[in-house]
């Protein structure tokens, strides 16, 4: 019977095995880096989408909605981020098409300022009202109680007669 030579692999890692290990580690690192970048991009897409109103939904953001139009808008945000556009440029792209309506938070300019300023003004007015009331109460409390002679005589008479 003819015996075929068998090659027994060495237990000690040779240069080929070592380079394989190195390659695997590099691939793993690269994969991790790419995945981390994907996660970051994804979270930026949703961060922007959260600030946009879904045009075909009721009170839902583009991030929360599963409507086809919202999905397309998220895709457009991703595409524009990949092209290196800034957040402001992306918002401007959507407001150019949908107007300021598309922003869930009204912009801090023009008539929209009323929405931002009014609550602060109302809060300050409320505080001023409370301060005025407290001042009035304190002023009243500080005033000495004036009791007329007639009332004093009556109380004294009642005490003496033992009715009080």
């Amino acid at each position: 019977m003819k015996l075929h030579p068998v090659t027994v692999p060495s237990l000690r890692p040779g240069p080929t095995l070592r380079s394989r290990w190195l390659f695997a580690c590099a691939a793993l690192l690269l994969g991790g880096f790419v995945a981390a970048q994907d996660v970051e991009l994804h979270s930026r897409v949703f961060e922007i989408a959260r600030q946009l109103r879904c045009p075909v939904c009721v009170s839902e953001s583009v991030a929360d909605s599963n409507a086809q139009l919202a999905q397309q808008m998220r895709q457009m945000i991703q595409q524009q981020l990949e092209e290196g556009r800034s957040e402001a440029q992306i918002f401007s792209y959507f407001t150019n098409r949908y107007g300021d309506w598309i922003m869930l938070e009204p912009p801090k300019r023009g008539l929209h300022l009323v929405v931002w300023v009014l609550p602060v003004v109302a809060g300050l007015a409320g505080l001023a009202g409370v301060a005025l009331l407290v001042r009035r109460w304190l002023a009243t409390a500080r005033q000495p109680i004036v009791v007329g002679q007639e009332a004093l005589d009556r109380v004294r008479a009642e005490l003496e007669s033992g009715e009080g």
């Binding site: 075909v56 086809q68 139009l69 999905q71 397309q72 895709q75 098409r97």
Partner: peptide, 11 residues
């Protein structure tokens, strides 16, 4: 993909 719709500001 509704790309034209978004570009036209469709509601």
């Amino acid at each position: 993909a509704s790309a034209v719709s978004v570009n036209w500001g469709l509601f």
